[in-house]
Design a protein around this nucleic acid. Sequence first.
DNA 1: TCGCTACTTTACGCAGGAGTAGATACGATG
DNA 2: CATCGTATCTACTCCTGCGTAAAGTAGCGA
Lengths: 207, 207
Amino acid sequence: MTTGTRRRLAPEVRRRQVLDAAIEVFSEEGLHGASMDAIAARAGVSKPSVYAHGGTKDELFAACLAREADRLMSTLTTAVLPDAGSGGADARARLRRALRAFFRAVTTHRQGWTVLYRQASAGEFAGPVDAARRGIVARAAELLAAELGGSPETALPVAHTLVGAAEGLADWWLGADHRSEDQDPADLLADMLVAVVWPGLDALRQA
Amino acid sequence: MTTGTRRRLAPEVRRRQVLDAAIEVFSEEGLHGASMDAIAARAGVSKPSVYAHGGTKDELFAACLAREADRLMSTLTTAVLPDAGSGGADARARLRRALRAFFRAVTTHRQGWTVLYRQASAGEFAGPVDAARRGIVARAAELLAAELGGSPETALPVAHTLVGAAEGLADWWLGADHRSEDQDPADLLADMLVAVVWPGLDALRQA
DNA sequence: TCGCTACTTTACGCAGGAGTAGATACGATG
DNA sequence: CATCGTATCTACTCCTGCGTAAAGTAGCGA
């Protein structure tokens, strides 16, 4: 039992395993609280393997960040892209759809969300996270401008408000357990948020 | 010049200096990024002095947190307390007043805000920060319930949404420089947020 | 069956930074 | 003016944890 050897796996697969484990540990312990040994243990792999597939701790964290940011961004994009027969018909429905996609992504991959928004928003990785967030806000601003009129620039503060509201609601939902509900949480949350903000947004259209 | 010794100051004064320096450094570097040496240098004091007046690094950080949380909380409380001749007259005005107080506090003490919400929300101090935030949200929920009807419990998600929206807007404002405006930023931001959320909140009253 | 190499164990180097020990000088008080 | 308490300093110790090197083992394609 001196040397236990694992099954050999394709580098790509191992890398995925390491990334998954890293996201778990980072979401629980934070960037500095997590040790490379802990990540190795969680992945069921030795520490040198973590370095081989994930690189430096910072590189590994950055990789986690990038993966989760991409996932979230692509989810939102595909949720909004199929305009189908929108034609500006029901702006409210489009908003609701985008929000539901956001809440679904967050509630489904809550560890990724935690890493991205709770652990990484401070310290040396504030820049990249901010960039990701700004990407989402920018897209929201485009949509708002298209639906409600005005330039994306004008819509920027409104977009920030909207995204902040969604984050606040998501955090609340993730904070306590709401297993009693039988409805899809994403639907529930999207409905709540739309109810609060839509009348105001609609009013902004006239102005 | 082997040993440069500073003027002796009253412990209370030194402690305030150390706390101020600590908040500055923590807001820039984060809890782990900040070194006690850096805090000492910023305070214009030696490291042992920092330990003498601020205690351990964790204690120092906790003290910063407590001070900023108290400041914010008391600001909000006093902004809402003077109901004067409200009598439920203008709920919208009360909401606007509370929001303006929040934005004023945040824009005035932006470093404190940064420490409290960006740096401390992750890691070992998530608990206390969460508690502070929950205090604010709870108060908001009370007010919402009083103004719009319903129980504070029902208003909780709405309160989280509202607070999240305010945070998002504040972050946007603090992110870029908006020195071109001549109006009070707090007024501006409060107006924006009220415009977005008030119609929806008003509609919730009927339901 | 043979080797290539992914993987493991083990051990260590090293840097950064928290926290401390002992020396030093300031300033109030008699 | 002498003295003492203590605020403050310089210079250290020590620990944690990243990152790596060396040496051996075994899966898997040829």
